[in-house]
Amino acid sequence: MQRILDNIIKDTRKWTIEGQVASYIPELAKGDRDAVGICVTTLDGEEFFAGDYKTKFTIQSISKVITLMVAICDNGKDYVFSKVGMEPTEQPFNSITNLEGHDRNIPLNPMINSGAIAIVSLINGNSPEEKFERILRFMKKITGNDTISVNEEVYKSEKATGDRNRALAYFMKSTGVIEGDVEEVLDVYFRVCSIEVTCRDIARIGAVLANAGVMPWNDERVISREVSRIIKTIMVTCGMYDGSGKYAVHVGIPSKSGVGGGILGAVTRRMGIGVFGPSLDDHGNSIAGLKVLEALSKEFDLSIF
């Protein structure tokens, strides 16, 4: 495994020049376009690393997997999916047309920005601070990393430039999808997206999903098998934004990407995968990360199809 990962990183690093780091959030523009790293966490406790795996990056949209777990545990799947759909979209992740004109004007799925903002609004807590702390504690638990924290500079940058997300949120407030204070919901959303992680952290989240909701390193169940199945299914159909169909064909691993350059993968009964590469393609997915996962999937026959 180690030799294979080293070779994959070496062979795919060249793809970074084909993309660009995210710049619509100014702090993300400081990322190293040439960085590429991977961690694989197997369900029998082994971990393998290659490339720039120690580099910290903000979790961004990979956090949508976490908040969906928490929201379903708080409210049950039926209520959550009365507010957010399960259907893929051909539009970009921050599209306004993903909202208006669809059934009951609810977000199409929890993996686009509007859906994730609606999901955050469902998480229990008497204040934005309490909601965020519950999410952060859950993340620390399922990664086994008590040092995880928010990158304050990215958080401030996201909050200062998040006008599109505000438009989405206020539209959902007008249609009754979001209840409560919109700015408080958005503050939690911006903070969660700005949590800093490494490849190992997201690989461990993937391993929990791959192990049907049980943490492989201590056998503690954190979500039900059903919730794990639901989330992995939505990751397959929606996790790579409007590039999800092509990704399913070429890679076939339930995955979730983020514009910070991370990609989380969950191979049921086998492994969790965390990939990092901040150079992005036109869909907002790590361009080298996609090549890494495609090579890994072919090498070990990881596609679910």
Rank of each mutant, 00 (worst) to 15 (best):
S257T: 03
V251A: 11
S297G: 08
V222M: 12
L296K: 14
L280A: 00
L296W: 14
E220V: 14
L296V: 14
V259P: 09
A295P: 06
S244R: 09
A288D: 09
K232F: 00
M271G: 05
K232M: 11
S224A: 07
P254R: 00
G261D: 07
G261Q: 02
G245L: 06
M240V: 10
I253V: 15
V259N: 02
V236K: 09
E226D: 15
L264I: 07
V251S: 09
A295L: 07
G277R: 04
E226W: 11
V249C: 15
G261S: 04
R229S: 14
A266C: 09
L296R: 13
G260N: 14
V227S: 14
I230N: 10
K291F: 06
E226G: 12
L293H: 02
G274A: 01
Y241H: 04
E220A: 10
I230G: 06
V267C: 08
S286F: 00
V267R: 12
I230A: 07
H250R: 13
G245R: 11
S224M: 11
A295M: 11
V249E: 15
G245W: 10
G239F: 03
L280G: 04
I263N: 07
G289Y: 08
H283I: 10
E226R: 15
K256T: 11
G274L: 00
I234C: 05
I273F: 05
F276C: 03
V292Y: 09
G262T: 01
S224D: 13
K232C: 10
G289L: 10
I230M: 11
G284E: 01
G239E: 06
G265I: 01
G274Q: 01
H283L: 01
R221T: 04
G252M: 04
G289D: 00
K246W: 15
A288W: 14
S244Y: 07
A266D: 10
K298E: 12
A248T: 10
V267S: 03
D281C: 06
G262V: 01
G262F: 03
S228P: 12
V227L: 15
I263W: 07
V236N: 07
V259H: 08
S224Y: 09
G265W: 00
K291Y: 05
G274R: 00
G289C: 04
V251G: 07
R270Y: 03
M271L: 08
L280F: 08
V236P: 04
G252D: 02
G243F: 08
K291M: 10
K232T: 05
S255N: 11
V267L: 08
A248I: 05
I231S: 00
T233R: 08
A266L: 11
V259K: 05
I263Y: 08
S224Q: 09
L290M: 12
G260M: 07
I253D: 02
L293Q: 05
V259Q: 06
I231Q: 02
S255I: 06
